[in-house]
């Protein structure tokens, strides 16, 4: 993917997430928070479908953001500012960091989808 595509995907997913947060946040602010209200709201098809799409949108957005942060700071140059020796491990550290957030992303997505549709 080209850099500009990634740039647009991150902004577009940010907008999708923003609309969802306004919607769910609005529910909590505008309604009295009881089990009946929450249970009804979270069992509607609209909530289930939009949450499923938005968890994927969140993962796309956060993956791009976390990847950017990793390639900005976990580099021989930036870590070299801390200590020259530390900088030598930058590529390994960045790989471990990327594996960590990819694993977490998959876990969060599968957990959410499982809870929504099968639990």
């Amino acid at each position: 993917m080209s850099g500009s595509t990634i740039w647009y995907v991150q902004r577009l997913s940010a907008l999708v997430n923003l609309i969802y947060v306004f919607w769910v946040g609005g529910f909590f602010i505008l309604n009295e928070i009881t089990f009946e209200n929450w249970s009804f709201f979270s069992s509607t098809f609209l909530f289930k479908a939009s949450t499923s799409l938005v968890i994927i949108s969140i993962i796309i957005h956060s993956s791009i953001g976390l990847w950017t942060v990793g390639t900005d700071y976990l580099t021989p140059r930036t870590l070299g500012f801390v200590s020259g020796n530390f900088g030598n491990y930058a590529d390994l550290l960045r790989l471990m960091y990327q594996l960590l957030f990819i694993t977490l992303s998959l876990t969060f997505t599968l957990t959410t989808l499982y809870m929504i549709w099968w639990l």
Binding site: I58, S62, G65, L66, V69, F101, L104, F108
Partner: peptide, 10 residues
Amino acid sequence: GMYAFFVTLP
């Protein structure tokens, strides 16, 4: 953003 992913989301 890091905090939101590693803490708020889970």
